[in-house]
Design a protein around this nucleic acid. Structure first.
Lengths: 135, 135
DNA sequence: CTTGACTCCGTACTTAGGTACGGCCTTAGA
DNA sequence: TCTAAGGCCGTACCTAAGTACGGAGTCAAG
């Protein structure tokens, strides 16, 4: 199977059909070729594209930022220096996110570490009162 | 200075005054004591609380999730086991985020690594066509 | 003791990111 | 070949997360 219709793509990528149209309008998903009837014919790769978008969202990127990320592999007119600058900024961005998530991870681990998993919080559970997250 | 008025807190935390009222309505920010006039008097810690909320958002948590995270240090009635379960799920969640961000980081680094930072993309810039991010 | 900046509150508006609706058209299978 | 399931489009609607408005009360510096 080489081509996908909207419904198939939507199902495979785990999104609503309308979301595909929405992404297309937004320029996140390139307009696919159409058959004579007007039906869209998506290539297989669209699945990973969509999934990348969804995952990047969960990582705190807005659709606009995601578009910029995706543009990196496509756009052939931007001056190289600009691309490099942008990319380096994004790397810092990502590194900060990783660092902060590690702080949160550590805080959460500290919580579970001591917890017996039984009894009720009020008397004895050592998990709480220890979630100190500072940035 | 022990107490903060809404405007002061807002400025320190870098958010709009209205956002504070909004968070209060949502239960993300506990209702502070009021002076006789009705004016809110926030404790200093509110600043870190707000900043935590903002940062957690940037890391891809919704306000509802953030509320759950914050609830961990406060709520004294939930059964310990439930708390532990929730916390462990969140840890996995966070670890997945970190892993995926690292993938993105690596992809972005691969881009800059080879780029001279000059010339235009179309002829010669090695950055592009190499951003292969798969989940 | 006034005046300008700040606060209160309820309510309305905005933006991002989708979802749903509905009328019409296409396709594929019995 | 008829027909249900699915596609097309424009438009309207929805939720999350704020932002703005505006009339009335409060505070503090001069």
């Amino acid at each position: 199977m080489e081509h996908l219709k909207t419904g198939e793509l939507a199902k495979r990528a785990g999104v609503n059909v309308e979301t595909l149209r929405f992404y297309e309008r937004k320029g996140l998903l390139p307009e696919p070729p159409r058959r004579a009837s007007g039906y869209r014919e998506y290539p297989e790769e669209s699945v990973t594209r969509i999934r990348f978008i969804k995952r990047a969202q969960e990582l705190g990127f807005s659709l606009d930022e995601i578009q910029e990320l995706l543009a990196l592999r496509v756009n052939a007119e931007t001056p190289c220096a600009g691309v490099k600058d942008f990319t380096e900024k994004k790397i810092l961005d990502v590194q900060r996110k990783i660092a902060d998530l590690k702080i949160i991870e550590r805080a959460l681990k500290k919580l579970t570490a001591a917890c017996p998993g039984q009894g009720s919080v009020s008397d004895g559970c050592p998990i709480l009162e220890n979630l100190d997250i500072e940035f």
